[in-house]
Amino acid sequence: METDMPAALRPLLLSAADVAHCAPPLGDIIDVVEDTYRRDAAGEVEVPAKVALHPHGPSSFLHAMPAWVAGRQALGMKWVSFFPGNAEQGAPDSSALIVLNDPLTGVPVAIMEGMWITYARTGACAALAAKYCANPMPRRVGLVGCGGLGEWSLRCLAAVFPSISEVFVASQRPASRENFCARMADQGPWTITPVDEVRQAVQDMDIVISSVPKLQTHPIVARWWSPGTVLIPLDITGSWDDATYERADRLVCDHRDNLARAFERYRPGLAIDDARGVGMQDIVSGRALGRTAATDRVMAFMTGIGSIDVAVAWDIYRRADEQKRGQRFDLA
């Protein structure tokens, strides 16, 4: 009996260098992220909460993040891990793969290194949160934590806000913030200053972005949070004390289920206050406001959703395919 042989499965393998080479400018990545939020608000996105594994307790995780963005014909999944302490064994703390699937057949068309996209899209999400939730023409930015997320956030903020003129950087180690400031000094029209106290990167800022590890203590305290400041904790639950959360006038979030699970695992004493809450998708689509007054203290949780990763990854994959970048291999 004759049967049809399946078509060859030859996905494109893209390294981190391939991804970086084929990526569009930061402004275009921010546009893709904004468009994906807008499509989500219109019901064109299917993005469940992260599926999480914690093989060594709450300090480490692996997340499966599938998504379908219909309007962009973007289908796939990110598989990302964070194992603190890996550096001591010569391995990265974070790693990620993104698998893209053909929207018509479901077959895999690409396997990509995922950390470049993770950093870029997280910075883009932070910049968009600031675009919609900060007061106009922000000048002063505070960074609490200056690893990869801090760097990408600052680069994306520069693409959105030419008004930024002062940046203050706090971190656990003096050498890390001093090196960061030296490296980023000529990356924008700003003066950038390492500071010894977290307060100096929080008080009287227009935008504060935190990206710190999960710690037993929380370095941002409520009394430093000035009226009108937007606080964007990319660490989600790591940086702020309970009083800071209670002091927020507005709580912005891009995926409530993701945030609820993070609270349950890392801050079980707190509950999501829907009375102060608003969805990022509703803000981007014009259904809601990022702030209602110039003095509002806004906390914006960009939880990391698979639809953003997959939309950006498909944009890069299409460019790589056109440029004949990467390597195809036989999977079947």
Rank of each mutant, 00 (worst) to 15 (best):
Q323S: 12
V19H: 01
V221A: 09
L97I: 10
M302N: 09
A129M: 07
P189W: 01
T105K: 10
A243R: 02
A87Q: 09
A120K: 10
A288S: 13
D102M: 06
P227G: 05
R250G: 07
I305M: 15
V144G: 00
C133D: 09
G57R: 09
G27H: 07
N135P: 03
E88D: 13
I272R: 02
V80F: 08
A134M: 03
A158F: 08
V99M: 15
R173V: 14
V51F: 11
R72H: 09
R121S: 02
P84C: 01
L234N: 06
A134V: 05
A248G: 12
H218P: 01
D18G: 07
Q200F: 13
E178H: 13
C22G: 08
A288R: 08
S211A: 12
A293C: 01
G43A: 04
P24A: 14
R265Q: 06
Y37T: 10
R325N: 15
L12C: 03
V212A: 08
Q216T: 11
R173T: 15
L234H: 05
A288C: 08
L128R: 04
I192N: 04
V298L: 11
P24Q: 12
M5C: 09
D31R: 15
G150C: 01
F161H: 06
Y317M: 06
P233S: 09
G142Q: 04
V141I: 02
D31Q: 14
A248Y: 10
R319C: 04
L13R: 14
E2V: 12
N258V: 08
A248F: 12
V198N: 00
I232A: 03
N179Q: 09
I308E: 11
M280C: 07
V195K: 02
F61I: 08
R72P: 05
A248C: 13
Y119H: 13
T191Q: 15
T105S: 15
A288E: 11
R319F: 01
A23P: 07
T118I: 06
A248K: 10
R38E: 09
D35W: 07
V45H: 04
W240A: 13
A293K: 04
T237L: 10
P66D: 12
D204W: 03
A20G: 04
R287W: 05
M299L: 11
S81T: 12
P213R: 01
S81K: 11
F61N: 07
M299C: 11
V160E: 12
G286C: 05
I207N: 06
S211Q: 00
N86M: 07
R155C: 02
P103Q: 01
W116Q: 03
V144E: 01
